[in-house]
Amino acid sequence: MIALLSRDLKLTIRAGGGFGFAILFFFIVTLLLAFGIGPDIQLLRKIAPGALWVCALLACLLSMDRLFALDFEDGSLDLLLVAPIPLEVVVFAKSLAHWITTGLPLALITPLLGIFWDLPEKGYFWVCFSLLVGTPALSMIGAFGAALTLGLRRGGLLLSVLVLPLYVPTLIFGAEVSRLGAEGLDLQTPFLLLIALTLGALSLLPFAAAAVLRINLR
C-alpha cells in the first residue's frame, strides 16, 4: 500500500503541478463567485464558509476522472487486479493519494482565501478544519464514481453528474460546521456527523469501488 501511495504521489508531482492545479482552480472559482455576488463585504463574509466549501468541493472533483483512467489505459490496473494485494487496498491507497494532492492542499490554502472573503476570526480555523475532516470523504466518494465510469465514453461528464448528488450530505455537514464555527456557535452535532460520514465513507466505499472496478475490468 505504501508502494502504491508513493508511486501515485510521485507520478502526480512529476506530471507537473499536481498540487498546483486544484489550488489554482479553487482560487479562480472563489474569485469568480465573489465577482458574481458583488463587493458587499458584509454579504461575502456571511456566505464565505459555504461558498468556500462549494468551491473546494468542485476543485476536488476536477482531477477525479483520472484516478483510475491512467492505470486503466496503460494496463497496470489489470495487473494490480491479479497482484497479491486486495483491490480494496488499491482503491484506498489511490484515494488517499488523491486526497494528499487535492483535499489536503485545498484545506490548507483556505485560510489564505478567507482573507479575500473577510472571514470572521474563528472562521479561519473552522473552515480549514472542517475541510480537513470532510475532504477525505469527498475523495473516496469521487473514487467510487471514477470506478463506476471507468472506460465509458463521456466518462468525465457522467462522473460529475453521478458524484455531485452523493456529495450532498458531506457538503451540508461540512458547511454547517464552518458556518457555526465562524459565528462562534455550538457545532458539536454536525461536526460529529461529519466525522462519522468520513469514517463511514473510508471504511465502506472501498469495497463498493473495488466491486465496481472488477465489473468494469471484466
Binding site: 510521485k10 489505459e73 496503460d74 494496463g75 489489470d78
Partner: peptide
C-alpha cells in the same frame, strides 16, 4: 502472473 497487451508501465517513472 499475467502480462497483457499493455505493459503496465508508468511513463513518468
Amino acid at each position: 502472473i499475467y502480462a497483457g497487451h499493455a505493459d503496465g508501465l508508468k511513463a513518468g517513472l
